[in-house]
Design a protein around this nucleic acid. Structure first.
Lengths: 185, 185
DNA sequence: CGAGTGATTGACTTAGATCAATGACCGTGG
DNA sequence: CCACGGTCATTGATCTAAGTCAATCACTCG
């Protein structure tokens, strides 16, 4: 168990993979930085979620793990986890399912990035965040974070949201956004 | 074992997940289509590679499986695979490693999409395709496919390649591209 | 030998990135 | 308890890289 202050780094890109983590409270993100200093959040783990599972099969972490706010994480030594996966089929199956889920969520995000226009991208992202039949989303983080996650500058996101609101496609109250029913296919 | 003609569909988005596949020869891609008719290739499996593993834990396939050319695929019934994963730790570990690899490759692609300029994006993609220290890449498919994979229009890709070649950052001979050593960090 | 597709280049347009400024809010240290 | 520094949210002005439309040439495949 380890306690992290807001902004504290749990592990660095390139560190040898010694453990995987489970978030008890707070939030920890997997982050990568490109040459231009741009920041990409690959995954964001809240209470009950694990992170760095995929690194269990690589010698090094391939991104940074950073607490976005004060957090408490459970630390599982990599060796122990690997042993458990080998000896306990149920654990192994659960682990595979988690990885499969990550693959699919990454695919969804990639698909989102393929949408060229900001308007459609934002609408899809909101629909995705809301889930299949929900009409409302409460964004987990700031609008800025959301912008980064979907690959837009924050300015573009603000403008797009303002435009969507103006023609009645969404309604907003702070962090919460309501998708107005559209008669689409 | 199943033989596919070029363009033939192995499974459709939404079909119940009854099997996963292993490519013997040819090439099979996981493809998704968005509302605008745009096409996104999520994964491309050549000889020896498997596809649809991630779907083993969902009730339905979440994308289409299409042969890009004549192909021969080995069919593994989902039930049998699940049973094998439960009973044989070695198989299970290998499967997990494969999924973990997919997660990381998706992350790499997502990172690529975060690069805004075509020039940098193309260079990164080429470096990625070439591997850590290789200087040459022979693209698996057409330039058009490559363009789609990295999220550019084919025109933008052609122009960018031409520009890169013009200032000596790359050299080309047909499908093969040589990255000219840059004195970067 | 035509039809279809990839590769390539030109001209034009535009959506979104960039740069910039402002107000609201929030924690915090004196 | 409040002024201050910091970040988020928002909007304006401007610019440009990449998308879109279009035409041409080279191939390959029945």
């Amino acid at each position: 168990m380890r306690r992290l202050a807001a902004g504290e780094v749990l592990f660095h890109h390139g560190d040898p993979t010694r453990a995987i983590f489970e978030v008890e409270s707070g939030r920890v993100q997997l982050v990568r930085h490109d040459a231009g200093g741009h920041r990409l959040v690959l995954f964001s783990a809240g209470p009950g979620e694990s992170l760095a599972e995929a690194s269990l099969f690589s010698p090094h972490y391939h991104c940074d793990g950073v607490a976005t706010r004060a957090a408490l994480v459970r630390v599982h030594a990599a060796d122990a986890v690997r042993a458990a996966l080998r000896s306990d089929p149920a654990t192994a199956i659960a682990f595979m399912a988690a990885l499969a889920g990550q693959v699919q969520s990454m695919r969804a995000r990639l698909e989102l990035r393929n949408i060229r226009t900001a308007r459609e991208r934002v609408l899809h992202a909101l629909a995705l965040a809301a889930g299949p039949r929900a009409r409302n989303v409460t964004l987990p983080g700031t609008l800025k974070d959301f912008a980064a996650e979907i690959g837009l500058t924050h300015e573009a996101l603000y403008r797009t949201l303002a435009a969507l609101q103006a023609d009645g496609a969404i309604r907003r109250r702070g962090r919460t956004i309501a998708l107005v029913m559209r008669p689409d296919a």
